[in-house]
Every structure is written in C-alpha cells, then in structure tokens.
Amino acid sequence: MSAPTRRSLREQATVDDASASPAPAAASSRGTLGRALADVLLWLAAAAGVICIVLVIVAFTANITLIMFRTGSMAPTIPAGSVAVVQSVPASEVQVGDVVTVDRAGDLPVTHRITSIAPGASADERVITMRGDANAADDPYPYTVQTVRIVLFSIPGIATVIVAMGDPYVLGGLTIGATVLVVWAFWPRSRKESREQIDPAGVDR
C-alpha cells in the first residue's frame, strides 16, 4: 500500500470541510434571520416614534386633545369606552347638530350634541343647549360658552388601551423591551459571527 500523498491529503481535507459546512451555514442563517427581525422591529419602533412626535406637534399647534367616554350617553354614535379626537374652536363657529365638549366649573366636561344656539352677552359668546343621543331630553340647563371642543372623530373600544398605557408597570415593560431590542441589535458581533459572513472565496456576503 502506497503512502498518502500531499494532494490526496488536501482533497480529503476539502471533503471533510464540505461535509462539516452545513452546521455553520445553518447557524449563520439563523443569525441573519434574527438580525433581520431586529432591524424590522427597530424600523417599526422608529416609525412609531416619528408618528408620535408628529401627532404631538399637530395636537399642540391645532389645539387637539382626546376625550374618553366612560358612559353611553352618546350611544350609539359614540359608545362607552370610545376615545374622541376634539379640537378647540370659537363658539361662534359651531352649528346645531355638532357634537361638542363643554367644560364645566367644578365638574367634569360634558360631550353632547347641540340642539339649539342663542346669542350671548358678547359677540363671541353663545348660549347652547345640548342632549346626549341616548337621552330622551336636553341637559338640565343651557351652557354659556365662548369656546368649545368639537368632536372631529371617535374610535370605539380603545379607552381601556389608553388607560393601560398610563400604568407604570406597562410603561416600565415597554421601556425594558425597547432597551433590550436596541442593545441586541447594536451589540458588537463576535469574530466568529464576522467570519461566517465571509464566503470561502473571501467575498463579503
């Protein structure tokens, strides 16, 4: 029997490397998939942050706020548990049929539909009567106002979500989750992971 030559030893080593390559390739594929998922989540978080900033700017400049409905006095138009987006406007701009929020001294604001409008003591003042869509009669007394908050639109069923977002435990969990995601995405890769990104020909994938 002849002794193995250097060429045969190199060919055997190449065969052994080829048979052992699937495991590192699979590990590299899993790592690439994980990082791709992290990138997608980071982009989504960044987009959500930009949207929140834009909404805050719009709300501040356009006098827009949110109103949560605890009762069903405006059902079925605005059921209990809904959140309405409202904008502060002069009382002189509203009309009968508009749904508005009126602030009351020493009491919670009321959001009902306008049933009548009368002039007030000044050019900017109006005396309005209102009624909830689910109520059989107008509110007990009229409201003298110079500004009101008119309902632009409402979203049913999300009041509980907004309330939950203000919970310290929920906020803490979201903060921790975001921190973990950012650390995981930007954590320096090991030398082994870096080598796995380069093919045998030395070309970066």
Rank of each mutant, 00 (worst) to 15 (best):
D16C: 02
L33S: 11
A48M: 14
W43V: 13
D16G: 01
V40F: 03
V50E: 02
P24R: 07
A18T: 13
L55R: 08
P22F: 08
S19G: 05
L55D: 10
S29E: 09
P24E: 04
S21Y: 02
P24M: 05
A23Q: 09
T32E: 07
V54M: 13
D16V: 11
I53R: 04
L37N: 04
S8K: 07
A45Q: 03
L37R: 10
R30T: 08
Q12A: 15
A23S: 10
A45P: 00
L9I: 08
I53M: 12
W43N: 03
W43H: 04
R7Y: 10
R30V: 12
A36P: 00
A36R: 10
A38L: 14
D17W: 14
D17P: 01
L9G: 01
L41S: 04
S29D: 13
A47D: 09
E11L: 13
A26L: 15
G34A: 11
L41W: 01
R30F: 07
A38Q: 05
I53Q: 06
E11S: 08
R7E: 14
L37C: 13
L55G: 09
A45E: 03
T14G: 05
A46Q: 05
V50M: 07
R30W: 04
A47W: 05
A23N: 06
D16Y: 09
A13P: 00
A18P: 01
Q12I: 03
A36L: 11
L41N: 00
L41C: 04
V56W: 11
A25L: 14
L33V: 13
A18E: 15
T32A: 14
L55W: 10
G31N: 06
V50T: 07
S19R: 15
G31Y: 01
G49C: 06
A13L: 11
L42N: 02
I51F: 10
T32K: 08
A18V: 13
G31K: 05
V54A: 15
L37P: 01
A45S: 13
S28M: 06
R35W: 06
A25I: 04
V50S: 08
S19K: 13
A13T: 01
V40C: 02
L37K: 05
V40P: 00
A27F: 06
V50P: 00
R10H: 07
L37D: 05
V54P: 00
